[in-house]
């Protein structure tokens, strides 16, 4: 067990480093030249980049699924009645612990450190941030690196949990991650976790009670409904306009 945990940790750290490097490079090549350009340019560049990334993986690693032998298999039985058991697997526990630790860490960075303040300042007014001595380019690069490191952890946990991975697996989780962030309120870290939990619960209950075929429809419908009726999300703060 200890060796599995160690292996998992090493894989996670290595993938964080590599993904961060990739993200840093992409920011330099595809987004930084477009800073200050018109609104849609970075979005189009980002869509192009996502096509590049998934197709790069397809070309480099082949289009087929990659199954991985299960690393963590143990489960804990929480409750058993009439032959039905409620179980909690170790991999679920690992996911919860890792999420909690990362949430705490990133919440601290964003709320309490100068880097986090610089990040928020850049989000609200880049020009003013620069006037106050914030190196905007560097701050944005670091933000991309942080985001990519988190995505790498999520990817490793995804593979550990489902045991199979494919080059096109990024798209739906990407949209759902955005849905979760919007649902919780853009800019709020606890909101993102809450949003992610809600999306997961809604999908699971929908699959359980209605139809598993339409579980993604349910997730996307919720995104639309949330944006239309509460655009600021659950924990998001309402936008304050300047006087």
């Amino acid at each position: 067990m200890a060796s599995v945990a160690l292996a998992l940790l090493i894989v996670m750290v290595v993938s964080m480093v590599l993904t961060s490097l990739m993200s840093w490079t992409i920011e330099r090549v595809a987004y930084r030249p477009l800073r200050g350009s018109f609104r849609l340019a970075p979005l189009i560049s980002a869509i192009g980049m996502s096509i590049v990334l998934s197709n790069f993986v397809q070309v480099a690693q082949g289009p087929r699924n990659k199954p991985v032998p299960p690393m963590v298999t143990d489960t804990i039985v929480l409750m058993e009645r009439n032959g039905f058991a409620v179980t909690l697997s170790y991999k679920q526990i690992i996911i919860m612990v890792v999420t909690a630790v990362l949430l705490a860490g990133f919440w601290y960075v964003v709320q309490k450190t100068p880097l986090g303040r610089a990040q928020r300042a850049c989000e609200q007014d880049r020009k003013m941030a620069a006037l106050l001595g914030v190196n905007v380019d560097r701050t944005i690069s670091l933000t991309f690196v942080m985001g990519a490191a988190l995505a790498a952890v999520a990817g490793t946990l995804f593979l550990m949990y489902y045991g199979v991975v494919n080059f096109s697996d990024g798209f739906v989780p990407g949209v759902k991650a955005f849905t979760a962030a919007v649902l919780g309120g853009i800019g709020s870290l606890p909101g993102a976790v809450l949003g992610g939990l809600l999306i997961g619960l809604i999908e699971t209950f929908w699959s359980g009670y209605f139809s598993i075929d339409y579980k993604d429809v349910a997730a996307f419908s919720i995104l639309a409904i949330v944006l239309i009726f509460m655009p600021q999300g659950i924990l998001g703060r309402p936008e304050v306009e300047k006087v």
Binding site: P114, R117, A118, R120, A121, Q124, D125, M128, A129, L132, G133, V134, G187, R237, V240, E241, K242
Partner: peptide, 15 residues
Amino acid sequence: FPRMTVLENLQMGAS
């Protein structure tokens, strides 16, 4: 910075 507190705005100035 509209979504930072007054104190945080001052911190930005001093950073």
